[in-house]
Write a protein that binds this DNA or RNA. Structure first.
Lengths: 243, 243
DNA sequence: CCGCGCCGGATTGTCAACAATTTGGTCAAC
DNA sequence: GTTGACCAAATTGTTGACAATCCGGCGCGG
């Protein structure tokens, strides 16, 4: 209706040689879409760790062919969200305590670099965005709104990634974070955490906006070190208390 | 012959929940095997950047079904070695100059952490292995054997990864390195590079063996900063001279 | 009562045929 | 000479059927 040409389906020719599944939600291959859906189902906890992922079931659930599920599982296997044992099917990969810490530490290493790069490349738009997010964050703390806070937190880190313009680090960080989402809420819920976290974020924003790369890296390092320490603590508590 | 039970095919039950394609070459699913082969073909340069990857061709080349090629392409797409455009097939992904630098920088960030962790966990075995590799490396420099040197170099970094015992960092580093292999030879061939590189490696080995985490991280950082700088230089030269 | 082999259902792995899409070339019309 | 539509070959996307494998329970023998 909106387009007279029967064969036309996209106006722009699309940039080739770009990470295949990175783009917008529309104009995505069926495989990529299914993969994204499955990934989200896992990270949101709708599929619990170690749960068996039966191809036929998933195919029905997402209303697609088994082949699509199959490639989706292969891709998620590739970035460690799923384990596949030959002839025995796939399961949601369980992240061991030790591994969770590994992930947090690796994230720290990369994100410290990202903060440095963001500071080095900071422009007016980015600075404004950061300051706005800082304000939102402060409001969330005042109101004691954990959900909002966690959203602002994620948004702020994403904005830093955007400013750094490091696609490689981006991809890796997104993968690492998808592993952490299920764990980080424990840290957010610790008493007093939002307040310290806010202060740490302020330091990051200030350093990045000032274009001080060293300070930005240091601030991010402090922030994520503190996060990692609390994560370890939370894990330890769970290990002792849970059993 | 060696086993009376007709159904037995592996002695140990195998640890579930481990990165699927990380293990030994035997006992690998067909998909994983094909993926590994294709990955190697790409990293070794047998398939040039931007080359079209026709499923039927590859299927014949590796003597497998098209479906296997399909999942292999999906997995390689996932870790950025291949780009797939819907209905238009897959190509070997070309790494732009900027991206090569990004990759080198990200590698630096992670490997600095790995060096730190290796130093913290260093045991007698690891120390011995590092010292042996250092010797081999020195010999390679004396003899002016670039190939041997590059192998020792890779082995040394791998040994550090092993010592650090950080599976997450491992996976990421291996991916990043697979992108760099085709570029790093330019750096190795620069005049005088092996000698400086050797000195840098000596510093790393010394720090790690001494269990000095800070020094190890610093040494690795210096080493890879120097590498990255030369890589940038090599790229710049190629950009100006190549055209 | 316990181990062992075996069978049936469920699930994954393999494959080839078919449908849909892109691509490049040809030809006519302007 | 150039533009545009159309056609054919090549290639990817989709689907269903079939084979191979694993997992549970069941019965047999010790």
């Amino acid at each position: 209706m909106t387009d007279a040409h029967p064969r036309a389906h996209a106006s722009r020719p699309r940039d080739p040689n770009a990470p295949s599944s990175g783009g917008a939600l529309a104009e995505m291959s069926a495989d990529a879409l299914v993969t994204a859906q499955l990934r989200e189902a896992i990270t949101r906890g709708q599929l619990s760790p170690n749960e068996r992922l039966v191809e036929a079931e998933l195919a029905e659930r997402f209303a697609v062919n088994r082949a699509h599920i199959r490639t989706a599982l292969a891709m998620l296997d590739q970035d460690g969200l799923v384990v596949r044992l030959p002839n025995r099917g796939a399961r949601v990969r369980v992240i061991s305590d030790d591994e969770a810490i590994e992930i947090a530490e690796t994230r720290l290493a990369i994100e410290a670099m990202v903060a440095r790069q963001a500071a080095a490349k900071a422009d007016a738009t980015g600075r404004a965005a950061l300051r706005a997010l800082e304000k939102d964050m402060a409001r969330a703390v005042e109101q004691g709104d954990s959900v909002l806070y966690s959203q602002c937190n994620a948004a702020l880190h994403r904005e830093l990634q955007r400013m750094a313009g490091n696609a490689t680090a981006d991809r890796i960080l997104n993968t690492l974070k998808s592993h952490l989402v299920r764990l980080q809420y424990r840290v957010f819920l610790l008493p007093g955490r939002p307040k310290t976290s806010l202060a740490e974020h302020r330091a990051i924003v200030a350093a990045v906006c000032a274009g001080d790369a060293d300070a930005a890296e240091r601030a991010m390092r402090d922030h994520l070190t503190s996060f990692t320490r609390l994560l370890k603590q939370a894990i330890e508590v769970a290990r002792l208390g849970g059993f």
